[in-house]
């Protein structure tokens, strides 16, 4: 597809068991496993350790390796700030006191923070494995087989296609703004905050007009090619039973971990 897709999907074009697996098996397996991971209880270290196993297995099975998965998962890090206060506000036995400010962290608070971060990391890693082994078109096709409304799937499909085109337009406008905004180092450049925001707003408005015009041309071209409301695919192979069973086993494992650690 586009060059943008080539960058975003550069790992999805590789070869491995996970890459070959059908998206109709991978998408529901990932969704349900992530749900199971999110329902891990606070301080249930055994369950968390057992749930890391599928991530490690997946990292090797995809031939992307654990380092790749680790790198991909750092994107979600800034959100850590949102849970850290929990360590200091949750009542419990004090285990450490921050030097200067004198806040006290409780054992229950630290347990809660660690659990949330671990759950989140496992979920992000599982999602990263899905996206790194599956093209967007395959994911969207899988969504259609699960009755996600046609309009929504087609919208995401078109957004993915045209993001590159519209994004290039946006980058050109940003470059144009940079080249007309000369400034002397050390001197204050540009008008007031309001003025700067207005320039950005005009660019957004201009981008909207251009995008709308483009969507009309796209629609005319689609009509000329006989578009009937749904993209057509050439292969309609049913989902291989083995892959369906494989996906079900992964989900069953995650559910068994949750049920097992609750019973034990």
């Amino acid at each position: 597809m586009t060059a943008f897709a080539a960058v975003v999907e550069r790992y999805a074009a590789r070869e491995s068991v996970l890459h070959r697996a059908d998206a109709r098996a991978k998408v529901p397996a990932v969704f349900l496993t992530v749900l199971a991971v999110t329902s891990t209880r606070e301080g249930d270290w055994l369950a968390l350790a057992l749930l890391v196993i599928p991530v490690v297995v997946g990292a090797y099975a995809s031939k992307l390796g654990p380092w790749f998965v680790l790198r991909r998962t750092f994107l979600a890090l800034p959100f850590v700030l949102a849970v850290l206060p929990l360590a200091f506000t949750r009542p419990g036995e004090t285990v450490l006191t921050l030097p200067v400010v004198g806040w006290t962290a409780s054992d229950d608070g630290l347990t809660a923070v660690a659990t949330i971060l671990a759950r989140s990391w496992i979920a992000v890693a599982i999602t990263a494995l899905l996206v790194s082994t599956t093209t967007v078109v395959e994911i969207l096709r899988a969504l259609r087989t699960f009755r996600v409304p046609r309009l929504l799937v087609a919208t995401i499909f078109f957004a993915y296609r045209y993001f590159f085109v519209i994004g290039e337009e946006a980058v050109r406008m940003l470059r144009a703004r940079d080249s007309r905004s000369a400034s002397i180092p050390g001197h204050r450049a540009g008008g007031t905050l309001r003025w700067r925001a207005r320039v950005a707003g005009y660019m957004v408005g201009s981008l909207f007009v251009r995008s709308l015009d483009r969507s009309e041309r796209v629609y005319a071209a689609m009509q000329a090619r006989g578009y009937a409301g749904e993209p057509q695919f050439l292969d309609h192979a049913p989902l291989p039973v083995r892959q369906g069973v494989g996906a079900a086993l992964v989900v069953a494992y995650a559910v068994a971990v949750q049920v097992g650690t609750r019973l034990a």
């Binding site: 078109f158 085109v165 519209i166 629609y219």
Partner: peptide, 12 residues
């Protein structure tokens, strides 16, 4: 096409 291009527009 309208919704799709508009989603790309919001993203951009």
């Amino acid at each position: 096409p309208l919704m799709g291009v508009m989603a790309a527009f919001i993203f951009a």
